[in-house]
Amino acid sequence: MLKLKVEGMTCNHCVMAVTKALKKVPGVEKVEVSLEKGEALVEGTADPKALVQAVEEEGYKAEVLA
């Protein structure tokens, strides 16, 4: 499981946008995005760089935590 720090989310619409973007990345099996924690948990075999890029393309900042 990968944990991403996501900055810039302010509402549930943001959570939906980030979730949708991450689910499009090849290898992603499950996505859980938390507005309160500013994090996204991703299960699967996706490339971490591709995950960060997908989030950034939606207009948010992201970095891999673990």
Rank of each mutant, 00 (worst) to 15 (best):
A17E: 07
L35P: 09
V28W: 12
E39N: 06
E32F: 08
E39G: 03
K5L: 11
L41C: 06
K20H: 12
K23C: 09
K23A: 08
A66K: 02
T19I: 05
L2N: 11
V25H: 03
V15P: 15
G59E: 11
K3P: 03
G44K: 03
E63F: 10
Q53F: 15
V33Q: 00
V6Y: 00
E43I: 00
M1L: 11
V42Y: 00
E63P: 10
P48A: 08
E36Y: 14
G27H: 03
T10R: 14
G59W: 08
V6E: 00
E32H: 07
H13A: 13
E58H: 04
V55Q: 02
T10M: 10
V25Y: 05
V64L: 15
T19D: 15
Y60A: 12
K61P: 11
K3Q: 14
V31L: 03
M9I: 06
V25Q: 02
S34V: 09
K20Q: 15
L4H: 02
L22I: 08
D47W: 06
Y60S: 10
E56H: 05
K23N: 05
K24N: 09
E36R: 15
V31T: 10
A46K: 01
L4S: 00
L22Y: 04
G44R: 01
L65K: 15
M9F: 03
K30H: 15
L22N: 02
G27Q: 03
E32G: 08
H13I: 13
L41D: 03
L35I: 02
T10N: 12
K37H: 14
G59M: 14
A66P: 13
G27C: 05
